[in-house]
Design a protein around this nucleic acid. Structure first.
Length: 693
DNA sequence: ATACTTCCTG
DNA sequence: CAGGAAGTAT
């Protein structure tokens, strides 16, 4: 041990003993603990298509066998038992950070599925019921189907009010679980949701979405129609046998209607715009209203009573798969043509790849004169921006402090801050499953359709919103199409941008980075306004802008006081929660900072650095690269020299402490923290510029 | 009691 | 990065 090390930091040798007797954790860099995320087992593998078909087949089976499938009490009990078990598992886990895997929701759709065939194989049931019993059973089945439909209203919102339900005893565990899910769901809305919901509303993409939505609504109608026909057939069969005996049954409808109905789409589906309410009453069916015209079918059924189920099943399968196929085709067509067009990259002469519109952050020492003009103008309230803003609605409406912007069209071939971009990183699997190059099974697309709009990072599935009748709800459809809208929105550029005279790059790609979106060529003002509308809100009003700003501020202050935070985040209402959030951010920044310091200090020792004088941090140091990558990912900010000094001091402190084996003391870092906390410097006033108007 | 911090986990 | 547990300081 080199005694000369001591005089550097002897004076802040820790005197306190940490009460907490934690076992010293090995340095985190020694073990790569990066990748053991519990693979969020999403909903039990059922794709939407298979759900649809399964539903169909089950309806079939339901008609054939068990009379109380949807409300089989045994099925409910087993479901409750299952959820109880899950709850126990969940609560027994100590750090109950609400693992989405243990709380995997059983949507009522899947519930119905499991309930419909609790034994898993209803197809081999015997068909040897007596005729009378069978008729009665059929009636009961139909009633149960109706009830099953009645409790699956199309609106998904009503299913989230678990708190108000009065759980029966055998459903208590289920209700408890639902409450938990609901509670967790109220938390932070994921940024993507807002993005997807409100992102881009250009007319073109709206049309695309509209078409697809229409198709899916059609599917919904078909299902309702087919359900209605099931009921019709059974009603007819049971009644006609009596009516025929009385001579009151009249068959008076044209034959070719059957053809037109079943082969040429579904013209009568308008009658069933709400296929559910039609049957919710459970009362006698209004046959004239239903416009039942399939007499050919009816005759066929009458003449071949044993084949009716098979025929109906075939019809159902055909219609459903046809509708699903067309929908899937449309999905692929639209998505592959819009969302996944390769981002526009420029291959530079030197082989460097650069996206357009690199943001440029000026160092605090440089006069950000070119940006002030824009900022001061864009900080004006929209209404005060007089004619120009009105004529150019896509003008930047949100100021980015320190960001100098420039329309994409004005990007010079060689920008000053040339940034070599990494290959595109896709952080949104739910958006990218659909990539045309890895076309997967159709059902995956629809799986994504199911998952897309929901908190896929929190719940990994449909938390409390059942898919009505196994079909996507209109909201889900919207959420799938919205990425397309975003894309078409960002590619549409106003013919002229007012900031053409600012010869620097724009700054939206960094936001795309943070959002994991592919880099698409985008007009700055368009994106800016989109940011506001889609609100990349991270938490409680804090946005990615704020996070970026906080990270840059970290280069100046590691321990910002509340006053500093208040002064520099004056553009948002600094509630207690937001302040805590900001403080938490800096805490996280510090955590990463100190981890890196310890890591590199130990590394220096391992590499044989003998004197603290040899411990230095320069801009070409690995340590600096790591830090810069973390706090200044786009490398568009000139890190102040002072930060290098502080980093060097920190590294030296760690080096000394480790060299003196102080790290055997559980609280050995406290002294270092104390030293570093005194090295804060003032944050430049430029950071006070509000991010938003 | 409250605010702030670190540590740990996901 | 967020959430939570737990410690510390006021």
């Amino acid at each position: 041990m080199n005694p000369s090390l001591l005089d550097h930091s002897m004076h802040h040798f820790p005197s306190s003993t940490y009460p907490e007797d934690r076992a010293e954790h090995p340095p985190s860099f020694l073990h790569d603990n990066s990748s053991t995320p519990p693979s969020s087992s999403r909903s039990s593998g059922g794709s939407l298509i298979s759900m649809l078909l399964q539903k169909t087949v089950e309806s079939e089976q339901t008609l054939q066998e068990s009379s109380a499938a949807y409300y089989n009490p045994e099925a409910h009990i087993s479901f409750s038992a299952l959820t109880s078990r899950r709850l126990v598992n969940h609560h027994s886990s100590t750090s109950s950070k609400s693992s989405s895997t243990t709380m995997e929701p059983l949507s009522p759709a899947s519930q119905a599925s499991t309930g419909a065939s609790p034994n898993g194989a209803g197809s081999n049931q015997d068909w040897t019921l007596e005729l009378g019993d069978r008729r009665q059973a059929k009636r009961a089945r139909v009633e149960n189907i109706i009830r099953g439909i009645a409790v699956s209203p199309p609106s998904p919102s009503v299913h989230c009010t678990h708190g108000e339900t009065t759980p029966s005893n055998d459903l208590q565990s289920e209700t408890m679980e639902n409450k938990q899910k609901s509670k967790r769901k109220q938390r932070v809305p994921p940024p993507h949701q807002d993005l997807l919901r409100t992102g881009g509303a250009s007319g073109k993409s709206t049309d695309e979405g509209h078409n697809l939505r229409k198709q899916l609504q059609t599917m919904q109608r078909i299902l309702g129609l087919l359900q209605a026909r099931f009921i019709q057939i059974y009603e007819y069969q049971t009644e006609s046998q009596e009516d025929v005996r009385d001579g009151t049954f009249s068959t008076g409808v044209m034959e070719d209607d059957h053809q037109s109905t079943w082969n040429k789409g579904y013209p009568e589906t308008e009658v069933f715009m709400d296929p559910y309410s039609e049957f919710n009453n459970g009362g006698p069916l209004d046959r004239s209203h239903l416009g039942w015209k399939n007499h050919k079918l009816t005759d066929y059924i009458h003449s071949n009573p044993d084949k009716e189920d098979k025929l109906l099943a075939d019809i159902l399968k055909y219609e459903l798969s046809r509708a699903v196929n067309s929908s899937v085709d449309s999905i692929f067509k639209n998505i592959s043509h819009t969302l996944f067009k390769p981002p526009q990259l420029h291959i530079k002469d030197g082989g460097m790849v650069e996206t357009d519109d690199e943001p440029v952050f000026l160092s605090s020492h440089e006069p950000a004169s070119s940006s002030t003009h824009v900022d001061s103008m864009s900080r004006l309230p929209p209404c005060s921006k007089s004619g120009m803003a009105q004529q150019l609605p896509e003008i930047q409406t949100e100021a980015l402090s320190l960001v100098v912007q420039k329309p994409a069209s004005m990007t010079r071939p060689c920008s000053l801050n040339l940034t070599v971009k990494r290959p595109l990183h896709f952080h949104q699997p739910s958006l990218l499953y659909n990539h045309p190059t890895d076309l997967q099974e159709d059902h995956q697309v629809l799986d994504n359709l199911k998952h897309n709009g929901f908190h896929h990072d929190t719940f990994g599935g449909l938390p409390c919103r059942p898919t009505t009748m196994g079909l996507p709800t209109p909201e889900m459809v919207d959420l799938l199409w919205d990425p397309v809208k975003v894309k078409s929105k960002v590619t549409s550029r106003p013919p002229r941008s007012p900031q053409v005279h600012h010869p620097t790059a724009t700054g939206h790609n960094m936001l795309l980075d943070s959002l994991g979106l592919p880099h698409v060529k985008m007009e700055y003002g368009s994106f800016q306004s989109m940011v506001k509308r889609t609100s990349y809100v991270l938490n409680e009003g804090l946005t990615t802008h704020h996070l970026k700003k906080a990270k840059l501020m970290f280069f100046y202050t590691r321990y910002p006081s509340s006053n500093v935070l208040t002064a520099f985040f004056s553009d948002i209402q600094l509630t207690r929660c937001i302040m805590s959030q900001l403080i938490k951010w800096f805490s996280n920044f510090r955590e990463f900072y100190y981890i890196q310091m310890e890591k590199f200090a130990r590394q220096a020792r391992v590499e044989g650095v003998n004197s603290v004088r040899d411990v230095a941090v320069r801009r070409d140091s690995e340590l600096f690269r790591a830090l810069n990558m973390h706090y200044n990912k786009a490398n568009d900010f000139q890190v102040p020299d002072r930060f290098l000094e502080v980093a060097e001091i920190t590294l030296q402190e760690f080096y000394i402490s480790i060299s003196l084996a102080r790290d055997s003391d559980p609280s050995w870092k406290k002294a270092i923290y104390k030293v570093i906390s005194k090295l804060d410097s003032d944050v430049p006033a430029e950071f006070k510029a509000p991010l938003t108007t």
